[in-house]
Amino acid sequence: MTEVIKMERITKVYQMGEVKVHALRGVDLSVRKGEFVSIMGPSGSGKSTLMNLIGCLDTPTSGEYFLEGENVNTLSNKELADIRNKKIGFVFQNYNLLPRTTALENVELPLIYDRTGRIKNPRKAAKEALERVGLADRMHHVPNQLSGGEQQRVAIARAIVNNPAIILADEPTGNLDSVSSLDIMSVFQALNREGITIILVTHEKDIALYTKRIVRIRDGKIVKEINVNEPRDAIKDLEELKKGLALEEEIEMQEEELL
């Protein structure tokens, strides 16, 4: 399988006044096409910095980063913007939808900045993306009229509308209750089954159990990589949760076993 992301000895140093903060101290990471990876770590571990680097919002201090074989750590801000537009779909903890703007228009947003002309009909593409996340009937609603879970689905639709190489989700379930969280995870799993590569940052262990690989990061270094042999199925768990079955014990056991 081809590598979508290949990072070698990545470091990132922030200059905070007179103090240098080493956010990343030599990270090697590779993600192959079709993977579903979660990055876990306590706050201050450098996972947000890593996320920003993977998402081409920032460039590393040293090291090499190849995105679909293209070396992106030497690119200008303008080129980074174009890469983000072409290859990356973001999903944020607080949804980050434009207020007072319909779901459809929110999903269309990345296509406004598309300069390649690869998507001929933006409106149609946006509608299809919303259908894929199961929101066909909410297209003309503005964020205020949508539940948290629905807003996050709109955000996912926005992330997939430009056929990106990867979806980067930064704590996508952080603001959601457990039912909505599972619901969102089921959307991600469905998209992953269609072949989309997903990287998810979370600090919730139970959420990580729905991904195929867990990368643990601490003090700017990757400390552990765990392959999840049998990821939990979000749809099944959702049904059981709705029936009122206690999953906690089962999940806790699995966590202990893995982590």
Binding site: K78, P99, P110
Partner: peptide, 14 residues
Amino acid sequence: EIGIRMSVGARSSD
């Protein structure tokens, strides 16, 4: 909003 637009690929010039 500006941050969102930039994250989905708006250039500074946009």
